[in-house]
Amino acid sequence: MSHSPLLNLPGPSQDLLDDIDAALASARDVVTAYDPELVVIFSPDHYNGVFYRMMPPFCISTKATGVGDYGTQAGPLDVPEDIATGLAEAVLAADVDVAISASMDVDHGTVQPLQTLFGDATMRPVIPIFINSVATPLGPLRRSRALGTAVGNYLATLDKRVLVIGSGGLSHDPPVPTLATAPPAALGRIVGGEPMSAEQRQARQVAVMEAAHNFAHGESKLQPLNPEWDHRFLQIVDSGHLSDVDGWSTSWMAHEAGHSAHEVRTWVAAFSALATQGQYRTESRFYRAAPELIAGFAVRTAVPSR
């Protein structure tokens, strides 16, 4: 599923919110019926918990705390440390380099889906897995597929009902700074993780709302959404032909769908984990190009075909 800070802020039309709410309600019904014993979520970070002072491509959390940005739930998540550690060991044994964090701060990219699906982000044991989707340079997309495969093979040994979530927008290019583009005032934040005051967080929210308003009204220089690219990607995950993304270069993705389109890495990892159980089928399907959210917004649920 996609996420967006703007879902919790004034601005999006009621028509858009109703459409998204209906899609998320359908996903929530699937999750409620499945009643997972463990949740594994692949998600990005937006310089709220992982910074350039140490930027791994992948990181498995053994303890995690929500930062509470954009109205999401703050506080510790219920991370089963023993299972998370075993997962990290298994992924490393599968030749996928992954870091671990015994004190990971996670933002709306992780917490919003948990709140959406369970009402409370601490309702189920959860293992957050960070996938760098913003901070260049980025590795090839096939590495996210390899990560998901390694995770799925380990989860299959647990004899638990596991819900796997990929949290990320599709085509979108919001004004997120990088090491090469950040103004001097933002470098301390994205490199050193300098904390934001309440006033700074409020100013950031206002800036995000203004950027979305301008984008939705055609008054922005941000890169347009690319629904054609979004549908192409969704066809790949729906069909299970995940290796089709192996040849997608990072520069091509950014050119076609925006720099933050790299958040689809979380989807690739999640579906790759599911694919370790054989063929799968996607069931509920939703997509909407949403300029008011500065994103292509999609929701999918999928289960093994058997």
Rank of each mutant, 00 (worst) to 15 (best):
S4T: 03
L7V: 10
L9K: 04
L9C: 09
Q14K: 14
Q14E: 15
D15P: 00
L17E: 04
I20E: 06
R28L: 00
S43G: 15
Y52R: 02
M54R: 12
M55W: 15
M55T: 05
P57L: 00
P57V: 00
T62W: 01
Y70S: 10
G71A: 12
V79P: 10
T85H: 11
G86H: 02
L92C: 04
D97S: 11
A99V: 05
S101G: 07
M104T: 06
D105L: 11
G109V: 07
V111W: 09
F118M: 12
G119V: 10
P128H: 02
V134Q: 10
G139D: 07
S144H: 15
L147S: 09
G148E: 08
T149P: 00
A156T: 09
L158N: 09
L170F: 13
H172Y: 13
H172C: 06
D173Q: 08
P174D: 04
L179C: 04
A185Y: 07
G188R: 00
G188Q: 04
M196N: 14
R201T: 12
A216V: 07
Q223I: 00
F233D: 03
V237K: 11
D238C: 08
L242H: 02
L242K: 04
S243M: 12
D246H: 12
S249R: 10
W252V: 12
A254M: 13
A254Q: 04
E256K: 13
A261P: 00
V268Y: 02
A269F: 03
Q277E: 13
G278R: 14
G278A: 08
R281E: 13
G296D: 12
G296V: 11
